[in-house]
């Protein structure tokens, strides 16, 4: 039975990949118990490299591993994995298009207590802007496992955004998965919600609630944020009167931006974002409380849909 915890699923998957392929190595910056790279360490101590609290060196060291035929996974909190070593990701890894896997753990607001410095809410924007970088944001632990199974052969660098907490199961366990897939979890005719990560389950809740009011909502899991399947976005955005994006990320440069970029040049229903306004995070006692604070709730998704639909109906 898969754990609902994304980090546990990540660690277990890393061990699975390590068993399958000895090119897999893991590098850690002293957060192995949080990122769950420690599971790989226990299983493969010879292929586990503690790099200390030095993310820049870790990233370029991973480039050296990849240039020598290995598939390195590097680990830190999302905010450090993408920000502290941005230049190293850009130059050492993305320019030569190396198969380095960057695990941005405790992403978004999921490290609720540690506050602004530890909450990575602009990481998707940073990673999306890097040429060659693939950007993944799983909605549940099943999707983590399926994504990880794609990472032995996927060419080029990959950023994997991992939530710290348990998340409800939403993705269809028996459906085949491939990177780039936009998964329709529920069909509907009035509105379409493009969501990722924790906001996928919340958007499904919103769709269920709105159904009782006669509003039919389509919910899409956009777990591959880049390369974005533009055809699929345009297709799923068609035939509805409202389009909403929902993400645990700044509204600047995240999934909302990506969806609007995909829809440019085609006529489409009005779009609104559910996301974090241009601000930093904040410490809170619990994760759900923090999501409420930033309006990342099923109610927010539902009311955003209704507002758009009202405007559309005039």
């Amino acid at each position: 039975m898969t754990s609902p915890n994304l980090r546990s699923a990540y660690g277990a998957s890393l061990v699975r990949l390590g068993t399958k392929d000895k090119r897999v190595v893991a590098l850690e910056a002293d957060l192995g118990k949080s990122t769950q790279s420690a599971m790989f360490q226990a299983e493969f101590p010879d292929r586990y490299f503690q790099m200390g609290i030095a993310e820049q060196n870790m990233a370029s060291t991973a480039a050296g591993f990849a240039l020598t035929g290995m598939i390195p996974f590097i680990h830190s909190f999302a905010v450090f994995a993408t920000g502290r070593d941005y230049d190293q990701l850009r130059n050492s890894i993305c320019i030569p298009n190396l198969p380095v896997r960057i695990c941005g753990s405790s992403a978004g607001l999921s490290d609720f207590g540690d506050g602004k410095t530890h909450q990575g809410i602009e990481d998707v924007a940073l990673m999306r802007a890097l040429p060659n970088m693939t950007v993944l944001c799983p909605a549940d632990s099943i999707e983590v496992e399926k994504m990880m199974d794609c990472l032995l052969d996927w060419p080029g660098p990959v950023y994997l955004r991992i939530n710290r907490n348990d998340l409800p199961f939403v993705s269809p366990a028996d459906e085949p998965y491939s990177i780039g897939k936009v998964t329709m979890l529920r069909d509907g005719s009035h509105a379409a919600v493009f969501a990722a990560g924790v906001m996928v389950s919340r958007s499904l809740e919103a769709a269920t609630a709105l159904a009782t009011e006669g509003i039919s909502v389509r919910v899409l899991d956009v777990s591959t944020i880049k390369p974005l399947d533009r055809e699929a976005i345009i297709r799923y955005a068609g035939g509805v009167d409202a389009i909403v994006t929902a993400e645990e990320h700044s509204i600047i440069g995240g999934i909302g931006s990506a969806v609007v970029e995909a829809l440019r040049g085609v006529s489409h229903a009005p779009v609104e974002f559910v996301g974090i306004p241009d601000s930093f995070g904040i410490s809170a006692e619990g994760y759900p409380e923090l999501l409420v604070h930033f309006g990342l709730t099923s109610d927010a998704v539902a009311s955003t849909i209704k507002t758009l639909l009202k405007g559309g109906r005039k």
Binding site: F49, T61, A63, F65, G69, Q88
Partner: peptide, 18 residues
């Protein structure tokens, strides 16, 4: 790929470990 200064020694560390 080098040129953004300071990264070559780290890359060599990864190569040597591999």
């Amino acid at each position: 790929v080098t040129g953004s200064l300071g990264q070559g020694l780290s890359i060599s560390v990864g190569m040597a470990l591999a």
